[in-house]
Amino acid sequence: MNFLSRMPSWVGHHVAAIRMVVVLTLLLGLAYPLAMTAVAQVPGLHHRAQGSQLTGADGKKAGSELIGQSFLDKKGRPIPYYFQARPSNAGDGYDGSASAAGNLGPESTVDVLPTKGGPDSGAQSLLTQVCSRSKAVADLEHVDGSRPFCTHDGVGAVLGVFRADGTSGRATRVISLNQACPAKPFRTSYEGVAVECAKPGADYSKAVTTPVRGNAPAHPKVPANAVTASASGLDPQISTAYAKLQTPRIARERGMSEAAVRDLVDEYTDGRGLGVLGEPAVNVVMLNAALDRAHPVKGA
C-alpha cells in the first residue's frame, strides 16, 4: 500500500486540486499568452496587435487609428486647417476610459436654463445640442446651418403654450422655452398671443411643449453626423458628406487645390462593411496625419 492510498480522502482531494491549478496556470497563464504573443508578431497582424498606432508628421506616436481625436485649440475652438471629427460624449472627448453615449432621446427638447451666478447650472437638451453644433459648423464652413426645429441663434425652437383648459383650448400665454431673457424669441406671436422669452428658474411645467419646425430645408447642409455623437464616443470616422463640406476650408488653409484634398479624402475612405453594411466613412485621424505629412502648415 503506497503513501497516497494511506492519506485521508480530503488530503487527496486537495492534492488533485493543487495539481489542476498548476496545470491550468502553466497552460492558460503562460503557454497561451506566449502563443498569442507569437501569433501577434506575424506580418500583417503586428500593427493591429500594437493598437493600430498612428504615426504623426514628426515620426512620433500620435494615438490610434481606431480612436477619434478632437482637433481643437486651447480655447476649444476648431483648428481651421484640420478636418473636424464628429462630436464625442466620451469623457472630455474620445476618452477611451469613459466610452459612452449621451443617453438623450428624441423627447429631449427643453433645456434647463442656467441661473444667474450659477456657471455650472443648466443643461442643454439633445435638440439644442444639435442646433448649436449645426450653427457652429455652418459658421466655420460658411454655409447655411438651418435645420428643422432650430432657431436662428442655435437652440431648440420649442414653445411652451399655456391653454385655457390645461392641454386644450385657446392659448393664453406662450413662452420660447429655450431662449432665456433678454433674448428675442424666434417668433413674435403664436395663435395670436405674443411670445415671451423664458426666465431661468421659472416653472413652465403646466405649459404644453410645442416644437416648431420652421422653414428649414428637409435635408440640411450640415450632415447629421456633424452634430450627433456616436454610441461609443470614440469613432474616428465621419461621413463622406461631412468631409466634402470641409474640403474647401482645408484647401484654403493649407494652400492646396480642392482636387488634391479630395484625393487624400478618397485614400482614407473606407467602404461599406462586407460591401453592403453601413455607408462609406472617412477616417479623420489618419487623414489629418496624412495632411500634416504631405502639406504641413507653416508655424503650426
Rank of each mutant, 00 (worst) to 15 (best):
M1Y: 11
L4P: 10
M7S: 06
P8G: 01
P8A: 02
V11K: 03
A16G: 08
A17F: 09
L24Y: 07
L28A: 14
A35I: 12
R48Y: 13
T55Q: 12
K60R: 13
G68I: 15
P78S: 03
P87F: 09
G96W: 03
A98N: 10
A98S: 04
S99V: 05
A101C: 04
A101H: 07
N103V: 14
E107G: 15
S108I: 05
D111F: 14
L113K: 12
P114L: 05
G117D: 03
G117E: 05
Q129H: 08
V130I: 14
A136L: 12
E141L: 14
E141W: 05
G145H: 06
C150V: 08
G154N: 07
V155Q: 08
A157W: 04
G160D: 05
T167S: 10
S168T: 15
G169S: 05
N178H: 09
C181S: 15
G192R: 01
G192D: 09
E196S: 12
A202E: 11
Y204E: 11
K206V: 11
A207H: 02
T209Y: 06
P211W: 05
V212G: 06
A216C: 09
P217K: 11
K221Q: 15
V222M: 00
V227P: 11
T228K: 03
S232A: 01
D235S: 14
I238T: 05
T240C: 01
A241R: 10
A241E: 10
K244S: 13
T247W: 00
A251N: 09
G255E: 00
D263E: 12
G271P: 11
R272K: 15
G273C: 06
V276A: 04
P280Y: 09
P280C: 10
A281L: 00
A290D: 12
A290T: 14
A294I: 14
